[in-house]
Computed example of a mutant assay.
Amino acid sequence: MNVAMFLSSRGGTASTADLARAGFSRSQLTRAVAEGVIARIRRGHYGLPQGASAHRAARELGAKLTCLSAAPSYGLWTLLPAQRLHLCVGHRATPSGSVAHGRCRHPRHPWLPVVGLADVLMHALHCLPELEALVMVQCAVGRGDISLPFLRGKLAGNRNARARSVLDLVIPRADSLLEVLANTWFRRAGLQVRRHVEIPGVGEVDFLVEGCLIVETDGEAHLEPRQVKKDRRRNNASVVGGYLVLRFSYDDVVYHPERMLAQVFAVLEVRRRGGFQP
């Protein structure tokens, strides 16, 4: 593996120490810089010459990414990409246009200029709107990367009450951020909801609302032709089995939850009035 390939495998940047541990000598780095294969970002740090990235910006500033800016490094769900850099800068002044976060209390990422996962999530819980923080925490907890008891133990006291309230919304299992958000909206609307219910002849459904209405939350994968055909068969089997069905897309769940809820309540009301009876 040459130095450019190594940098690509490490998010496009690396420290001199990491490069040395990988077996690259200073003379090799000097030659690669002279040939334009890599670029010297600042003393002790190198990167690929093309393009800009959050990792590169963090190394240029001598800072570490955290909160929403660090989510891609850990593969966490997000509703929106970071519009500004969220940074831990230590005792230095915060760069203009960035968001400063408090000091880090846990081991950082082993090679990226990113704080540890626990710090990322705790910063997100204090910084981001409720649902944006929730999907990040849900993703990490659901994969087993971190536990809810651990996070709760780090968030004691009155000033952390809001952060703990977000943890209360985390569910045991969610296959997508859409399930997390839909579950939150349904619960807050007072609906009786069961998740991941196995329906005979249909299979597992995302939600069974009030015991009669199947609700499915469809991400991009459901737009693929094979999946569309499968979903149609499942819809038909659901109706044959005596259930009503509603399907909602990313746009519905994320940007128009009030419309989603209105349709759910409308179907339940029609059923209550006998509208689906012979």
Rank of each mutant, 00 (worst) to 15 (best):
L87I: 03
L87H: 01
L87D: 00
C88I: 10
V89N: 08
G90H: 08
R92Q: 14
T94N: 12
P95H: 06
P95R: 06
G97Q: 13
G97I: 08
S98V: 00
A100C: 01
A100P: 02
G102M: 09
G102D: 14
R103F: 03
R105I: 15
H106P: 04
P107W: 08
P107F: 09
R108Q: 10
R108S: 11
P110N: 01
P110C: 01
P110F: 00
L112Y: 00
P113E: 00
V114G: 01
V114I: 05
G116L: 10
L117E: 00
A118F: 02
V120P: 02
V120N: 06
L121F: 01
L121R: 04
M122K: 13
M122Y: 00
M122I: 15
L125H: 03
L125T: 04
L128A: 05
L128E: 08
P129C: 03
P129N: 09
E130R: 15
L131H: 15
E132C: 11
A133D: 02
L134E: 11
V137D: 01
V137A: 09
C139G: 12
C139E: 03
C139S: 15
A140I: 12
G144T: 14
G144Y: 09
I146R: 13
L148M: 09
L148F: 03
P149C: 09
F150Y: 13
R152N: 05
R152G: 10
G153P: 11
K154R: 15
L155N: 06
L155F: 08
L155M: 13
A156C: 13
A156L: 15
G157C: 09
R159E: 11
R159A: 14
N160Y: 02
N160V: 00
A163E: 06
A163Y: 05
A163G: 13
V166E: 07
L167I: 09
L167H: 03
D168N: 06
L169S: 07
I171H: 11
I171T: 15
P172N: 14
P172G: 10
R173D: 02
R173Q: 12
S176M: 01
L177N: 02
L177D: 01
L178C: 06
L178E: 06
L178H: 01
V180Y: 09
A182H: 14
N183S: 12
N183R: 07
W185E: 06
F186H: 05
A189H: 10
G190M: 07
Q192Y: 08
V193M: 06
V193S: 07
R195P: 04
H196K: 08
E198V: 12
I199K: 13
P200Y: 06
P200A: 12
G201W: 11
V202A: 14
V202P: 08
V205Q: 06
D206H: 06
